[in-house]
Design a protein around this nucleic acid. Structure first.
Length: 497
RNA sequence: GACCCCGUAGUGCAGCGGUUAGCACGUCGCCCUUUCAAGGCGAAGAUCGAGGGUUCGAAUCCCUCCGGGGUUACCA
């Protein structure tokens, strides 16, 4: 599956954790390589030293690892190439493709204000541009600070490229400003560095967010100035918050961070599935994709152009993130091979402090563990449910839902006593199975001349604390005779406040 | 403001000149279950942003406007 001609990269800047948009970009790059072969490179764009932190870098790597998006080369630190970047800038300067802009911050402000009053955009530092090479060199030699700006060609020319998603993109040189390459302190700026590094790494396809669509023209100008052939570009639509604004941790909280999904019990494959569905479609009605199916179906031509919204509600915990993501997670959890789910359920129980070694692979209760997880998973949404809603199956203590008690236990004043009686009946059962449990329960209901439902619902709540869950008799069998008897025998005091 | 991108149910997508405008999530209802947030079935929900063209015929092509987004930094 190797294809030396294809080299893609994911290049996040560590000015924040990995957010869903970044995760989606990484996923698409990864899918591209998995589909067509090639090399996936990870590069950390830490040129802004003020805002970049090691913690952010760590969390980005963590997020990618959790997502299962493994890279072939890197992570490379963009800042390691600074000397190389400076050298290239010097070449550009020497060849007249760039110029020293001696305008101070105040000068620039004045120029911009002037441009504004003339109702035209500021585009170049005209006075500095007009300097002869000798004058410029002399001022530099005498220590005048300057930024290095790209000298956008004059005339009617334009940059043109074919975007893999947005089609032909054209921009006239006169609409492109002389953007800065180097700061006065000599440190390189983004639009310049990406190009240097993409050339250095012989990147063939740049797949990234649409916020770079306009920047691409500037970058192409640099490729041209350097005499290099630009890579293929493909831009992805942006992902916004319900208010259509950019997703930001400050404004929207943890929903935006990839690691949140890990911490909230998402399954990587399900999250990949969800991410893929934002801004992409296979062209069919299929929406549930295993990752292998995703790779198979993936194509840039399926990428849409409109920005999407992750639909979540801060006020509704049931909708802390997009319901579709939640739904997909539940579906994956339910459909994936049990052997793959078990280690995840195990990890969840461990982190909740509920793990029992006898349930481990090879342990004498492994089979029970597998059956119980299988019994529980159809109505679970995230891995968290194993330690939350399903806690009664794995621990001696569990939360009691007062609503369930009202509804199923105190519905009839006789229920508590009947359940205690049921406990003693169950205790006498030689082989406790769902069949024998059901037989005993129905027999008791008949003797008592009450509806079996009263016992069924009451037993469910007393044994698990809630009013929903797997079919009762399956549940009883899973819990086992001892626990069921013990819990039912305490029905009198159950949930009393 | 300038340049660029986008605009189909609440949300994510399909549709690419002729469809009763599909699918999924969500919502609602019914069935199953003497449980359910599971499963089954079904319903509501879109004047395809608006207005003009072109065409026998337009969500699909063209123009204008409006709305949203991006870029316009010595951020990335």
């Amino acid at each position: 599956m190797s294809n030396p001609a294809i080299r893609v990269r994911f290049a996040p800047s560590p000015t924040g954790y990995l957010h869903v948009g970044g995760g989606r970009t990484a996923l698409f790059n990864w899918l591209y390589v998995k589909k067509y072969g090639g090399t996936f490179i990870l590069r950390i764009e830490d040129t802004d030293k003020e805002r970049s932190t090691d913690d952010n870098t760590k969390s980005i790597l963590e997020g990618l690892k959790w997502l299962g998006l493994d890279w072939d080369e890197g992570p490379f630190l963009q800042s390691d190439g600074v000397e190389r970047h400076k050298k290239i800038a010097a070449e550009l300067l020497a060849s007249g493709k760039a110029y020293r802009s001696f305008a101070t911050a105040a000068d620039l402000e004045a120029q911009r204000k002037q441009a504004d009053s003339e109702k035209r955009p500021w585009q170049r530092d005209v006075p500095s541009r007009a300097l002869s090479k000798e004058e410029s060199d002399a001022r530099a030699a005498q220590g005048d600070p300057f930024t290095v700006r790209f000298l956008v060609p004059a005339g009617e020319g334009a940059t043109v490229f074919e975007d893999g998603v947005y089609g032909t993109q054209e921009r006239k040189h006169k609409d492109t400003e002389d953007f800065a390459l180097l700061r006065p302190d000599g440190s390189p700026l983004y639009n310049f560095v990406v190009v240097c590094d993409d050339i250095e790494m012989t990147i063939s396809h740049v797949i990234r967010g649409q916020d770079h669509l306009s920047n691409t023209h500037k970058q192409i100008l640099i490729y041209e100035a350097l005499g290099k052939k630009p890579p293929e570009f493909a831009h992805l639509p942006l992902i916004n918050a319900p208010d259509r604004s950019k997703l930001s941790k400050r404004k929207h909280g943890e929903v935006v961070s990839v690691t949140t999904y890990r911490d909230k019990g998402f399954i990587p494959e399900a999250f990949r599935n969800f991410l893929a569905l934002i801004g992409w479609s296979s062209g069919t009605d299929k929406e549930f994709f295993t990752t292998a199916e995703l790779i198979e179906a993936f194509s840039l031509s399926g990428v849409s152009r409109g920005n999407a919204i992750v639909n979540f509600s801060e006020s509704d915990p049931r909708q802390w993130t997009d319901r579709k993501a939640l739904h997909l997670n539940a579906e994956h959890m339910n459909k994936m091979p049990l052997e793959q789910l078990l280690p995840m359920a195990e990890a969840e129980l461990k982190s909740a402090g509920l793990w029992d070694e006898s349930w481990a692979a090879g342990g004498n209760r492994r089979e029970w563990f597998g059956k119980t997880v299988d019994l529980l998973r159809p109505r679970f949404i995230t891995l968290k449910d194993f330690s939350g809603a399903g806690r009664a199956f794995f621990d001696t203590t569990f939360d009691i839902d007062p609503g369930a008690v009202d509804k199923n236990v105190d519905k009839d004043p006789g229920v508590r006593a009947w359940l205690v009686e049921l406990a003693s009946r169950f205790k006498g059962v030689a082989t406790f199975t769902k069949e024998s449990a059901e037989g005993e329960l129905r027999k008791l209901a008949e003797e008592l001349n009450i509806k079996a439902g009263l016992l069924i619902n009451g037993a469910r709540t007393v044994c698990t604390g809630v009013s929903v869950g797997p079919p009762l008799f399956d549940l009883l069998e899973s819990l086992g005779q001892d626990i069921v008897v013990e819990r039912l025998s305490k029905a009198e005091s159950f949930g009393r406040r």
